[in-house]
Write a protein that binds this DNA or RNA. Structure first.
Lengths: 215, 215
DNA sequence: CAATTAAATTATCAATCGTTAATATTTTGC
DNA sequence: GCAAAATATTAACGATTGATAATTTAATTG
């Protein structure tokens, strides 16, 4: 992570440490969960002492939310660009593949999103991911009613339920792929980030979407 | 849970409490994770004091594994019956729907399975779920080579990777549905356990399998 | 019913958790 | 370069964690 690309505008020492903290925290939270990760581990992973964390984040919870925020931002941005740019139906069918590319750069985030979705309802992490899903849902519904590409039964509740099930399925398929890294290594003796396998997964995603659209 | 059906053979008081402990632990572990759940919570949920737990389970870890074991057993059994009974290809395509019915009786188990799959590799919980997935994989591979229903490229590694991706996708689709209970309630204003929605999910599962088979 | 075993309780433990206070050390901006 | 601000450290805190010992209560069995 850390994204110290060419856009790295002269950042102060403190900002640099903050990024390193976020890097370490993202890996640890993803692999061990929120409760399973201690601030001691994060501090050690960053190479500083525990109380130094508090110069950058007010609490463990705040740090966790910052991790989620930083990870969710690229997704939200890609989604926004995709929607604002061209909202033909075909573009929506490409979203999972785009998300797959984004997650490929930070595979741990998939675990964090799933964990956040299952956390208690009033946690900010849960709300962040939920809001993102809702936006996808709204856009999906809009595009469907606009193009009538899927069974419009006339009953809005039924249509909503069907759409939600499809959306949730695509979400689980897309993120779940990255959650199954170890299982895949055991079963197929390969790596999930291998371009061949990414291509397979994208083909599968397209196939599933197509199957959904023919109702 | 507790399964105090008609098959409840005269169980001693201790065995009865052990089941109640497992019930409480399963709910708590599923909703809060292993580290997020304390033995105090489990004891309180059972209606006993904390050290009394140790009369039934040697440690927190042992209790956790017992929960997984009890939850995984019905799945493994259904899988075994299905395989031994009739191993026509069609039966394999019905497995996800069968698993959906089983999970419907104990929706929390879906979260436990996913958590176990992501836990550290040498934990027994992880190994239990992994072994179960491996069995599914082996059976799937056997049935595919037997019936040649899917692209047999001649390259075993490639076939394995493709099969693993499909299997993992079905696993994530099937369990993920139950993990998205809250998201579904928010989006579609309905409940995932509603028979209509279960029917929708099963139709989706079938559609996806069919899409997989036409390669 | 009585004796034995099983199961529950109270009290307590060391270890670890997130967090704060007080202080020392760098970085930063003029 | 020097003052001010930012960032780090050491030391310690109350709370909670999983677990044990000693003991009392309840259940099982002959």
């Amino acid at each position: 992570m850390s994204d110290t690309g060419m856009t790295a505008k002269r950042q102060t020492k403190g900002e640099k440490t903050a990024q390193r903290i976020l890097d370490a925290a993202a890996d640890l939270f993803a692999s061990q969960g929120y409760d399973g990760t201690s601030l001691r581990q994060i501090a050690q992973g960053t190479g500083i002492t525990e109380p130094a964390l508090y110069n950058h984040f007010a609490s463990k919870q705040a740090l966790y939310e910052a991790v989620l925020h930083r990870g969710l931002n690229p997704m939200a941005q890609a989604l926004a660009e995709h929607i604002d740019g061209a909202s033909r139906l075909r573009d929506y069918t490409e979203l999972p593949a785009i998300m797959t590319d984004l997650l490929l750069e930070h595979p741990q985030m998939a675990a964090l999103f799933q964990q956040a979705m299952q956390g208690d309802a009033n946690s900010l992490g849960t709300q962040l991911v939920a809001a993102w899903l809702e936006r996808l849902f709204d856009e999906g519904r809009r595009s469907l009613t606009r193009y009538g590409a899927v069974a419009n039964s006339g009953d809005r509740d039924q249509d909503n339920a069907a759409l939600a099930i499809n959306l949730i399925a695509m979400f689980n398929l897309t993120t779940g792929y990255f959650l199954s890294q170890r299982a895949f290594a055991t079963l197929a003796n390969g790596n999930i980030t291998d371009p061949d396998n990414i291509a397979r997964q994208k083909r599968l995603l397209h196939k599933v979407i197509r199957a959904m659209l023919v109702s």
